[in-house]
């Protein structure tokens, strides 16, 4: 179980700088969401933590161990890919158990862990199927199952919900919140979807062009954005629309413009939920209707 530290992390592709000095401290058990427009480097940063990209400068530590030169497999991280990246030739059972098999886990232990994970994700009936026989949401569960059986210190999610339709996304968000709650693990989550960020995160990190623009709790970013960019990243479509945010809003071409022009822009909206734990609490007391309607507008 471990937190995570990034110290002035840089990444260059040849001459092109992509990550330009990122410092972050992530506590154990925290749910951190990286948001930003495409090309801001959020996925690259995640992949650097995973070890899938070299680190050009600075240090990444998991726990108290600097992992710059550690192979991905030895970092104690698990990742859920946007494409799910399931092994097409293996059954769900083997997909989930592949990491354990490679680690030489005895067969009976492995079997128990796979079945436990399947139970948690309610996919026990799918274990014998191949990925091609699953729906998008089911594949997503398998991908998450593959991550959780290995009991990693850190979970990494690379836009895991972006290939699902809106209703499923809502379900999976709740599922992820629940998992975070149950597993008490560090999770880092990349998305360009503000709703996901707001509903899931303990901490939101807003990235722009390879730099951290602002980091903080969803509420603090929402209430007190350092600049227009952060504000636009966090609440583009509900600017100046307190309470009515749940209504389908006309989608402005450029949220920033609206923010600047909107007469009610300075009024502070009330936001009913922040952070996954809050979200959990809210979800349990509120019917999920409102959430799906929100998602539909997002």
């Amino acid at each position: 179980m471990a937190g995570l530290t990034l110290r002035s992390v840089y990444k260059n592709y040849g001459e092109v700088p992509v990550i330009k000095g990122v410092d972050l401290d992530i506590d154990h058990g925290e749910f951190v969401v990286f948001v930003g427009p495409s090309g801001c480097g959020k996925s690259t940063l995640l992949r650097m933590i995973a070890g899938l990209e070299d680190i050009s400068g600075g240090e990444v530590s998991i726990g108290d161990r600097v992992v710059n030169d550690v192979e991905p497999r030895d970092r104690g991280v698990a990742m859920v890919f946007q494409s799910y990246a399931l092994y097409p030739h293996m059954s769900v059972y083997d997909n989930v158990g592949f990491g354990l098999k490679l680690a030489g886990t005895p067969k009976d232990v492995r079997d128990k862990k796979i079945r436990d994970a399947a139970k948690v994700l309610q996919m026990e009936h799918l274990l014998d199927r191949r990925p091609a026989q699953l729906s998008g949401g089911q594949r997503q569960r398998v991908a998450i199952g593959r991550a959780i059986v290995r009991q990693p210190d850190v979970f990494l999610f690379d836009e895991p919900l972006s290939n699902l339709d809106a209703a499923l996304r809502v379900d999976m968000r709740m599922e992820l919140s629940r998992l975070h709650h149950d597993l008490n693990a560090t999770m880092i989550y990349v998305t360009h979807d503000q709703v996901e960020a707001m509903t899931l995160a303990d901490t939101i990190v807003v990235l722009r062009a390879g730099r951290v623009e602002q980091a903080g709790t969803p509420l603090s970013l929402y209430d007190d954005p350092d600049n227009l960019f952060v504000a636009g990243s966090i609440r583009p479509r509900m600017l100046g629309r307190p309470l009515s945010v749940w209504e389908p809003a006309p989608c402005p071409a450029n949220p920033l413009t609206v923010f600047a022009l909107s007469p009610t822009a300075r009024r502070k909206p009330t936001l009913p939920l922040t952070g996954s734990r809050h979200a959990m609490a809210t979800m349990q007391s509120t019917p999920p209707m409102w959430l799906s309607r929100w998602a539909a507008t997002a």
Partner: peptide, 11 residues
């Protein structure tokens, strides 16, 4: 992605 998934799975 499959290669990367395998690497993270410890292969």
């Amino acid at each position: 992605d499959l290669t990367e998934a395998a690497q993270l799975d410890g292969a």
